[in-house]
C-alpha cells in the first residue's frame, strides 16, 4: 500500500486545517459582526471556491503560481525555487479550495452569540480584540471544531486542484486520491482498493464527530 501518499494526504489536511482556522477566524468575525460597503461582494468571493469547478481553481492557481505569475514570481525572487509541484504549492491550493468550509460554520457560530454578551464585555472594559479572544472564541468552540472537521475532510478529498498545481511527485505532492487514480490507470485495482478502503473509517469517524458537535451545540 502507498503509505507515503496517505502520509502526504494527512499532512496536507492537517497543515491546511491549522492554517485555515487562523485565517478564517478574522474573516468570519468580519462577516458576522460588521456591515460595510462591498460586504456581500467579499462574502461571495470567500465562498467562490465552493462554486467553481476544482480544475478552474487549479487553472488560475497555475497562472498565479507559475514563475511568470505574481505569486510565483515573488516566491522565486525570494527563494529561487518554484511553487508549482511543491508541498507548499499544494498547501496554498488546498487552503484556497477549502476556505468556504472554514468560514461558513465559524460565521454561523459567531452570529449566534448574543450581542448583549459582547456589550457586557465592552462595559466591563474589554477591547474588541480581548472580547473576541475571551468571549466569542470560547463560546463558539463547537462551530470552530465543526469548521476544522469539515476542512480536514474536504482537504483529504481534494483531487483536481492538487493534480493541476502539484502533479504527482511521491512524498511531495502525490496525495492518496491521486495515488488511487494512478493505480486504477495502471489497472492495479488491489493497490487502489487498499488506499480507498483506508478512507472509509477516517471519513466515517469524522462525520460522527460532526454530528456529535451539532447535537451538543443544539442543547
Amino acid at each position: 500500500m502507498d503509505y507515503l501518499a496517505l502520509y502526504v494526504t494527512l499532512k496536507l489536511a492537517l497543515v491546511t486545517t491549522v492554517i485555515l482556522m487562523v485565517i478564517a477566524a478574522p474573516i468570519a468575525y468580519l462577516l458576522a459582526y460588521y456591515r460595510f460597503p462591498g460586504k456581500s461582494l467579499l462574502e461571495a468571493l470567500v465562498y467562490l471556491p465552493m462554486a467553481l469547478p476544482p480544475t478552474v481553481i487549479g487553472f488560475y492557481l497555475i497562472i498565479v503560481m507559475s514563475p511568470k505569475g505574481f505569486i510565483g514570481h515573488a516566491w522565486e525572487s525570494l527563494t529561487g525555487g518554484s511553487l508549482l509541484f511543491t508541498f507548499l504549492g499544494i498547501t496554498i491550493a488546498s487552503i484556497i479550495y477549502s476556505i468556504p468550509f472554514a468560514v461558513s460554520p465559524m460565521k454561523a457560530a459567531f452570529s449566534k452569540i448574543d450581542r448583549r454578551l459582547l456589550e457586557n464585555a465592552y462595559v466591563l472594559g474589554l477591547s474588541k480584540r480581548a472580547t473576541f479572544l475571551r468571549v466569542i472564541i470560547p463560546n463558539s468552540l463547537n462551530g470552530i471544531a465543526a469548521a476544522a472537521v469539515l476542512v480536514f475532510l474536504h482537504s483529504i478529498g481534494a483531487f483536481g486542484v492538487l493534480l493541476m498545481v502539484g502533479g504527482s511527485i511521491p512524498g511531495e505532492t502525490k496525495v492518496a486520491s491521486i495515488a488511487i487514480y494512478e493505480a486504477v490507470e495502471t489497472m492495479n485495482y488491489q493497490a487502489a482498493g487498499m488506499i480507498a478502503l483506508s478512507f472509509i473509517p477516517i471519513s466515517y469517524a469524522f462525520l460522527l464527530l460532526i454530528n456529535k458537535l451539532n447535537e451538543d451545540s443544539r442543547t
Binding site: 448583549r116 454578551l117 457586557n120 464585555a121 462595559v123 468571549v135
Partner: peptide, 12 residues
C-alpha cells in the same frame, strides 16, 4: 457597572 435584565453572565 451595568446589570441587564439577563445576559450579563458568560455561559462558558
Amino acid at each position: 457597572g451595568y446589570v441587564f435584565q439577563d445576559y450579563n453572565l458568560f455561559p462558558h
